[in-house]
C-alpha cells in the first residue's frame, strides 16, 4: 500500500500543480483614468481621447472665427447632428453635444433645442388645456428662430496590412470630421473646418 502511494502520489501532485497553474489566469485590475490629462489608445479605433481632441479643435475654431456676424449679435444655432460614415458604431451625438456645451459655456453662441421641440409642444398644450392658471402659462410665439444649422460628417479609411509572413498585424486608420455652419436664410456655408486623425496599431499574431 505504501509502495503504491509513494509511486503514484508524486506524479499526481506534479500533474495537479501544473494543471492548477495552467488554469489560473492573471488577476483582473481596474484603475481610474482622468480623461482631461491622459491620452489613452488601446488600439487604432476611435476612442474618448479622439473625441476630446476633435471637440477641442473644432470648438477653438468656432470661438476664434470672425464669420457669421458674431461682432453684432450672438448667432442662434440648431444642431442637426454628425453623420457616421465610418465602419464603427460611433455615437456621434456625443461629439455634437460636447461642442454645443463648450460653445454655450463660452457664451459666444445661442442654441435652440431641436430634440426637445415635441416635448416643449406637449408641455405648452398641457398648460393651455386648463390645468395651469393663465398667469403661469408660457407665452406662445416666443421661440427663438435659428440662424444657422450646425452639422457634420465623420469618415474613416481603414487599411490592413496585406497577408504575408509576419509576427504582427498592422492596421492603419484615418478619421476625418468635417463640421459646417449653414446660413438658414441664404443656404450659404458660412463656416467650415475639419479635424483629421491618423493612427497605426499592431496586434501580435502569436500569443500565449
Amino acid at each position: 500500500m505504501k509502495l503504491l502511494s509513494t509511486s503514484f502520489t508524486r506524479p499526481l501532485k506534479v500533474a495537479i500543480i501544473t494543471a492548477a497553474a495552467l488554469a489560473t489566469g492573471c488577476a483582473a485590475t481596474t484603475k481610474s483614468i482622468d480623461p482631461n490629462e491622459e491620452t489613452v489608445h488601446y488600439d487604432a479605433n476611435y476612442d474618448f481621447s479622439d473625441k476630446k481632441e476633435i471637440v477641442a479643435k473644432l470648438t477653438d475654431s468656432l470661438l476664434n472665427t470672425t464669420l457669421m456676424g458674431r461682432e453684432t449679435a450672438k448667432p442662434i444655432i440648431v444642431t442637426y447632428g454628425i453623420a457616421n460614415e465610418t465602419a464603427e458604431h460611433i455615437n456621434t451625438g456625443g461629439i455634437s453635444d460636447d461642442i454645443r456645451l463648450a460653445l454655450i459655456q463660452a457664451g459666444e453662441y445661442r442654441f435652440v433645442n431641436r430634440k426637445q421641440r415635441d416635448n416643449a409642444l406637449s408641455e405648452a398644450d398641457f398648460q393651455y388645456a386648463g390645468f395651469v392658471p393663465p398667469e403661469q402659462r408660457i407665452v406662445e410665439g416666443q421661440q427663438l428662430g435659428a440662424n444657422y444649422i450646425l452639422a457634420g460628417t465623420l469618415r474613416s479609411i481603414e487599411k490592413n496590412q496585406p497577408r504575408q509572413w509576419r509576427l504582427n498585424k498592422r492596421k492603419l486608420v484615418y478619421y476625418s470630421l468635417n463640421l459646417e455652419m449653414t446660413n438658414i436664410q441664404t443656404g450659404e456655408v458660412s463656416w467650415a473646418d475639419a479635424v483629421e486623425i491618423a493612427r497605426e496599431s499592431k496586434q501580435p499574431i502569436i500569443g500565449w
Binding site: S7, F8, P11, V14, A15, I16, T18
Partner: peptide, 18 residues
C-alpha cells in the same frame, strides 16, 4: 524510474483535463 512515471502521469492527466 519515478521521473518517467511522473512524466507519463502528467501527460495522461493533461490529455484528460484538456
Amino acid at each position: 524510474h519515478r521521473a518517467v512515471k511522473c512524466r507519463h502521469a502528467y501527460l495522461l492527466c493533461m490529455m484528460i483535463l484538456l
